[in-house]
Design a binder for these strands. Structure first.
Lengths: 186, 186
DNA sequence: CCCAGCCGTTCCGTTTACGGAACGGAAGCG
DNA sequence: CGCTTCCGTTCCGTAAACGGAACGGCTGGG
């Protein structure tokens, strides 16, 4: 699976249209109406409507009021949610959060999402590589292709990944998880 | 240790005065004048002057133009200068990498370091909170204070943290690990 | 059916962030 | 000293982001 170059610019995107789409997505995720969010955030409905449509150029004050009410940091609507450090597969997308180099091994920590559907097969890694998964949401079936394991939210999986292995979401819900890859030195 | 209520936020600072101070600091670091930066960024000197003084409420467009010319991401002037989301204890320091909100629970993913020495005791969390630790390097002894568990590099620990719990590095090596806190909804 | 209540959008007057120009002050130079 | 040049601030007309109000559309209840 993933092997991206560790260093990458966390560049921000400030196209008002894109910021607007993110705000709208976050709002709809929470199932609250534009009118309600505007009221809670103390901004006009016109302001929020224009912001979500990207037809305004919001001030920091406005953007802050809205994102604070959504319970997310400003960066949630400003930052590229995914760019280079994200690896996309047919069902799996993984974002590199951190690389840790030790004397014995190198660790890569990913944030992983698995879309519902047929799942994905990954080829074998080098000998000794292990994978550790902690599931946040959904039910994940993953591990060696001939003997996958299953974990639901809060569960943890671990396997030696020097054989072909699979990732699949069980049921209709997208799986969110953290994935730790351990590459032994050598 | 991390103790935050589920609604914890790696809060950004949007006080215009503070943003202004950071912009000015970054500009002076580079040894360029206000007039020059305004010209390069394509904004008025009045705009930049007001921005640095915190007497204006800049639009995203303005702030973007200025920070882009300074060669820093927007977060450099919005976010607390980095170690804000880091929680320090006597032996443990943990940096919040990500928050994941699910319908059933809130997850917080930390990068954790445990210094060699006597270790650290953390008070109980709310009922139902669980902790999941994957060790990168060193040997960690952690878990309920009356029955701690041990894991070395590559190992994984999990416990219910509604009782007082400890973290300690075994041996002289600093422990590096990822820590996942799960706060059930409610 | 009609009406009440909410939705999201659009209209509009007010407020304010914008850039250009003018300002006083601090060097650098003949 | 005068003159030039750059500095950062202030003044000011314009453009636009703001909130309130009105609008049409949809849904549910009497």
């Amino acid at each position: 699976m993933p092997h991206p170059p560790p260093a990458r610019r966390p560049d921000l995107d400030v196209d008002p249209a894109i910021v607007g789409r993110r705000v709208r997505a976050l709002r709809e995720e929470r199932g609250i109406s534009l009118s309600a969010l505007a009221r809670l955030a103390g901004v006009g409905k016109a302001t929020l409507s224009g912001l979500e449509h990207g037809t305004r150029n919001p001030t920091l004050e406005t953007l802050w009021a809205v994102t604070a009410q959504l319970g997310v940091p400003l960066t949630a609507v400003l930052a590229e949610p995914s760019d280079e450090p994200t690896v996309h597969g047919t069902a799996v997308s993984a974002t590199l959060l951190e690389v840790f180099t030790d004397t014995d091994a190198t660790y890569e920590l990913y944030r992983m999402r698995v879309a519902p559907g047929p799942g994905q097969l990954s080829p074998a890694h080098q000998a000794g590589v292990t994978e550790h998964v902690t599931v946040f949401a959904g039910v994940l079936r993953a591990g060696p292709a001939d003997a996958p394991l299953t974990a639901s939210a809060g569960g943890h999986l671990r396997w030696v990944s020097d054989v072909p292995h699979t990732y699949a979401a069980v049921g209709d819900e997208e799986v969110a998880a953290s994935l730790l890859l351990r590459y032994p030195r050598g």
